[in-house]
Structure formats: structure tokens, C-alpha cells
Simulated assay, not measured.
Amino acid sequence: MEQGLLNVVDIEATCWDGQPPPGQVSEIIEVGLTVVDLDSLERVARHRILVRPRRSAVSAFCTELTGLTRSEVDTGLPFPDACRLLAAEHGAGERPWASWGDYDRKQFARQCRATGTAYPFGQRHTNAKAAFTDARGLRKRPGMAQALELAGLPLEGRHHSGADDAWNVAALVLTLARSGNWPSPQAG
């Protein structure tokens, strides 16, 4: 059964209305992960990992966007522990994974480099936004909410919640898989 599983990941990071304050950088504060079984074409698990930022603080803008508060993320795991948890309990290194666009993959890589943390994911990543755009023959890559609308799917939960967005992206992955448009994960 493990071979047909795909991790769909969506992160939220510290953000500001404009540039970060001096000395602060954008850091992951939530990892949403939905496990998709590509054989049964079902979402089979849903996870949420809160991550405590080390070099930034949650701004009022960030709370308004994500719903996450400073006190809430302060209860989260340190980033290296969150990465170890992804690898140990969620098969992040073995399973292929997908995200909506390349931001999530690049932010993980950037933050792992900056903190000297082992990258938790394997090399088999699929940009679900690109797959959706190609399958639909669209000229512009839509945001997740617009893609749900185009696919006739509801936006479940809160937009810009990592756990809810991963759940919604997983629904889009399943529509692509059901129509034969989900690419086989490639290395690289």
C-alpha cells in the first residue's frame, strides 16, 4: 500500500505587509500535510505541524492572513525537530510529494540551508500547480482557490491554513489522478 502514497504539503511562513522588519526573515510556522493514496484515489490522512520561528515573529498581518498567532506558534516544534518528524513519522524522505507551486519546496531548502538542518524530503517532487495548468491547457497558472473553482470543488476550511490548503491541494491532485493527468513523480 505504501507505494501508492503521496504527501501533499502546504506551508505557512512568517510574513509582513511589505518587507520584513530589520533582522527578521521569513520562516516556516506551519506544515500542513495530507496523505493521498493514488491507488484508491482517496485522501487517507491529515496532519498539522506547528513550527516555532527562531529569527522572526508573527506579525498582525500574518495572523490576519493565516489565523496563526504568535502565542500559538510559540508552542510549536523547533524547525529541525519538525523536519525530523516529517522524515520519521510521515515518510517524507521515501514518499513522493507535491505542493502547489515551488514556493514550499524552495522555502524548505532555503531554511534547511540557513539552519544546517537535513532536508526532510526526497527528490521526487511534483509542482501540482504546473500539472493542473498543463492538464487544463491554461496560459496562466492559477492560485489554489481559483483552481478549486475551475475544477468545481469547494474550498474546505480556511485559505492560508497549511493543514486546510494541503487538504484542498490534495483534492486537486485527486481530480488530476482520476482523469489520468497526474504525472509520475520524477527524481530531481
Rank of each mutant, 00 (worst) to 15 (best):
residue 4 G to E: 10
residue 6 L to S: 03
residue 6 L to Q: 02
residue 7 N to P: 08
residue 9 V to T: 01
residue 9 V to F: 06
residue 9 V to H: 01
residue 11 I to Y: 02
residue 13 A to C: 11
residue 13 A to R: 05
residue 16 W to Q: 11
residue 19 Q to L: 13
residue 21 P to A: 12
residue 23 G to S: 12
residue 25 V to I: 14
residue 26 S to P: 02
residue 26 S to I: 08
residue 28 I to K: 00
residue 29 I to W: 02
residue 29 I to K: 04
residue 29 I to M: 02
residue 31 V to W: 01
residue 32 G to I: 06
residue 33 L to P: 00
residue 36 V to H: 03
residue 42 E to T: 14
residue 46 R to S: 15
residue 47 H to L: 01
residue 47 H to G: 01
residue 47 H to F: 11
residue 48 R to V: 06
residue 49 I to Q: 03
residue 50 L to W: 05
residue 52 R to P: 09
residue 52 R to L: 04
residue 54 R to T: 12
residue 57 A to L: 14
residue 59 S to H: 04
residue 60 A to P: 11
residue 61 F to I: 08
residue 68 L to M: 08
residue 69 T to Q: 12
residue 69 T to S: 13
residue 70 R to V: 00
residue 71 S to K: 13
residue 73 V to W: 10
residue 73 V to M: 09
residue 73 V to G: 09
residue 74 D to T: 03
residue 76 G to Q: 10
residue 77 L to P: 00
residue 79 F to A: 04
residue 80 P to S: 09
residue 80 P to N: 10
residue 81 D to V: 12
residue 83 C to I: 09
residue 84 R to F: 08
residue 87 A to M: 13
residue 87 A to W: 11
residue 88 A to P: 09
residue 89 E to Q: 14
residue 89 E to W: 09
residue 91 G to H: 15
residue 91 G to Y: 13
residue 95 R to D: 06
residue 99 S to K: 00
residue 99 S to R: 03
residue 99 S to E: 02
residue 103 Y to H: 12
residue 105 R to K: 15
residue 106 K to F: 08
residue 107 Q to D: 10
residue 108 F to M: 11
residue 109 A to V: 08
residue 110 R to T: 14
residue 111 Q to R: 12
residue 112 C to L: 08
residue 112 C to I: 06
residue 115 T to N: 11
residue 116 G to E: 10
residue 120 P to A: 04
residue 121 F to R: 06
residue 121 F to E: 05
residue 124 R to S: 10
residue 125 H to E: 02
residue 125 H to M: 08
residue 128 A to R: 04
residue 128 A to G: 04
residue 130 A to E: 13
residue 133 T to Q: 14
residue 133 T to G: 04
residue 133 T to F: 01
residue 135 A to D: 00
residue 139 R to G: 15
residue 140 K to E: 14
residue 140 K to C: 05
residue 142 P to F: 00
residue 142 P to D: 07
residue 142 P to C: 00
residue 143 G to T: 06
residue 143 G to H: 03
residue 144 M to H: 00
residue 147 A to F: 04
residue 148 L to P: 01
residue 151 A to S: 11
residue 152 G to E: 00
residue 155 L to A: 12
residue 156 E to T: 14
residue 159 H to E: 13
residue 159 H to P: 10
residue 164 D to Y: 03
residue 167 W to F: 13
residue 169 V to F: 00
residue 169 V to S: 10
residue 171 A to M: 08
residue 172 L to H: 07
residue 177 A to K: 05
residue 177 A to E: 03
residue 178 R to K: 13
residue 178 R to H: 05
residue 178 R to W: 05
residue 184 S to I: 11
residue 185 P to G: 09
residue 186 Q to C: 11
residue 188 G to H: 05
residue 188 G to W: 11
residue 188 G to V: 07
